[in-house]
Design a protein around this nucleic acid. Structure first.
Lengths: 190, 190
DNA sequence: CTATAGCACGAACGTTCGTGCGGTACGCTG
DNA sequence: CAGCGTACCGCACGAACGTTCGTGCTATAG
């Protein structure tokens, strides 16, 4: 196979798998090449060589985080019918993903967004792209469901997820996700 | 006057004023003593001497951020009657505070929470304390308003604020705060 | 006028960061 | 077998980090 662009599948993927979890706890800036290397029992330069710069590592990590959501949330939800059923499925699967520690350190996107929302540059753009894609898909399904003001619905669903993530991780509230599910049920007209 | 405890009012306060804004954009870890010093045209050691350690600086910054919310949101809202009126006032004032860039880099608490929600220690405890106090006050007023499940109400109000903050700062959505206000109106029974 | 205390300073420390450079083991292709 | 590219490593660098130390102002107290 003439794999289009990027080389080295396995090692690079293993690095990124770990990078996503590390970044979800330490942040994209706290995600350190040295730390990553010793976690994987590699040398700094060995890790570094796969990306060429820290910023490229961050961008690749963001992309990998997106792929994880795609794989564990978006893809499985495709079997549900478009519109309300799929929208519900998205919410269930995403909350389950967070609750079952699908990211080692809480929602990657909440952390990345808070960290970079005020720092212009490619990293911020990538984070925004990921969040926008997700919110856009939520709104699209809300529109297909015939809900009035789909953007408002998407906002409310996403807000509930953010609140649940914080309540669970920071405050240790075990009811956090149940609260979010209730908010979502109301927003989608239970 | 035998000023009870903390000495040096003006300089220390000026440092913390800047520190809150800096931390809201760069994070509490990205809040660097050197950066802070050059911003204030001081030496690193001059800034450092006021706190004795970076962790103490972070803790003092968190406290200063709490004081800012107390001054600009909680205190002014006390003139509203307890219960629903004050709860509404809290929401209005907090959203206004965010919208008018009361924190230079978006909601300080959202940023600090995302950064430290997985890192045990005094800093995390202080952040949690601040958020808990705020959520507790929201729930208390919801209870006085006779709302069923005041904790759920507090969760929904706070979630809307988090969502608005992210939508505005990361996505540049000018409608973000209006969406939050609408969500809040519904949650409080408009 | 002298002594004392409080701020702030500059220089230096040890560590860790991101980043380069040169070398080595291995698998392919001729 | 020779040659080459890929993947990884060891080492070194300059910069920035938090922190410590000794020093010099300025103002108040005796």
């Amino acid at each position: 196979m003439q794999a289009s662009a990027t080389a080295s599948p396995s090692t690079r993927d293993a690095i990124l798998e770990r990078a996503v979890d590390l970044a979800s706890t330490e942040g994209l800036e706290g995600l350190t090449i040295g730390h990553l290397a010793s976690d994987l029992r590699m040398s700094k330069s060995g890790v570094f060589a796969h990306f060429g710069s820290k910023q490229e590592l961050q961008l690749a990590t963001i992309q990998a985080a997106g792929a994880r959501v795609l794989e564990r949330v978006v893809a499985p939800a495709q079997e549900a019918d478009e519109g309300l059923p799929r929208l519900r499925r998205y919410c269930e699967l995403y909350l389950d993903h967070l609750e079952k520690r699908g990211f080692a350190g809480g929602c990657f996107w909440a952390a990345a967004a808070a960290e970079f929302d005020d720092r212009p540059g490619p990293v911020r753009d990538a984070v925004r792209g990921g969040v926008e894609a997700w919110l856009g898909e939520l709104a699209a399904q809300a529109r297909l469901a015939g809900l009035t003001d789909p953007d408002q619905v998407a906002f409310e669903l996403w807000s509930a997820a953010l609140g649940a993530n914080m309540s669970r991780r920071l405050l240790g509230d075990d009811l956090a996700f149940d609260r979010a599910r209730r908010t979502i049920d109301v927003a989608l007209g239970a």
